Amino acid sequence: MTAALLAGVAGLALLDALNPATLAGVALLLLAPMARPVLAAAGFVAGAYLTVLALGAVVYIGADVAADAAGNGLIWVRRIAFTVAAVALAVAGLRRLRARIRPAVTVPGWVNPLSAALLGLVMTGADLPNAFPYFIAIERMVNADVGTTRSLMIIAGYALVYCLPCLLLLIAGATRGDRVRRRLGGLYERLGAEKKQPRSVPIAAGYLAAAAGVLTIAVLA
């Protein structure tokens, strides 16, 4: 295990940590009209962490087996990650070609401090296919051949860094609840409330161009 490997994986984890899905989940729970919103947000973060840890371990073990079976077996890791990201960008671009009303983002009625962990698991798991920095980090670990135990320890650290912004928001909500909720409320009105989205050809073209670029990377990976 080298310092260069750890630094590279840490950098990828920091990039991956800027994840709007998990941050939005914590923010919504802190704003939710429930008895213990901070505890619910903590359950959400725990679910997100366990999801990143478990799926990372599964992908690593599968990639390690593929690398042993065929020397270039890891190429599929990169290609799948970038292809899924390209498809997501293309879908987002096509949706901007017509006017629509974006529904408000709300917390389901069944969510409580216990079931919030399940919500964190579902939201994080649904977003992980787009987290291509994670796949790149796993590929580097397999190529470095640092061993299963050390690799799983690195994956646990990656999952912690991934959840770091959520943890910071959670701590802020626990220590300065009213102030944080006021600021999150203003942000929610701009980003999470029901909103009419007009048709935008330039934005759609930007998404589609980005999708084409990412797909090119997938093909050349």
Rank of each mutant, 00 (worst) to 15 (best):
P113Q: 12
V87F: 13
L94D: 02
T106K: 07
P133K: 00
F82W: 08
A24N: 04
G125R: 14
A104M: 10
A63V: 04
N143G: 02
L97W: 09
G125F: 08
A24Q: 07
L97Q: 13
N112A: 12
V45N: 12
A27R: 00
A48W: 02
L114Y: 13
A85V: 07
R98L: 05
W110S: 08
A17D: 05
M34R: 15
D68Y: 11
R100A: 14
L119R: 00
A69C: 01
T124D: 10
R95P: 00
V59K: 01
R100K: 11
M141G: 05
G43S: 15
A35L: 12
D64Y: 05
G71K: 13
A66C: 04
I138P: 07
L89H: 00
V122M: 09
I75P: 00
V87Q: 02
G43H: 14
P129C: 08
I80V: 15
E139L: 02
L94N: 01
A41Y: 12
A69W: 14
V91P: 07
N72T: 07
V52D: 00
A131E: 07
L128A: 07
L89P: 00
V87M: 05
L118R: 07
A81W: 06
F44M: 10
L30R: 04
N72W: 14
L39H: 13
R98F: 09
Y134M: 10
G71T: 13
P33L: 09
G25W: 03
F44G: 07
L39K: 14
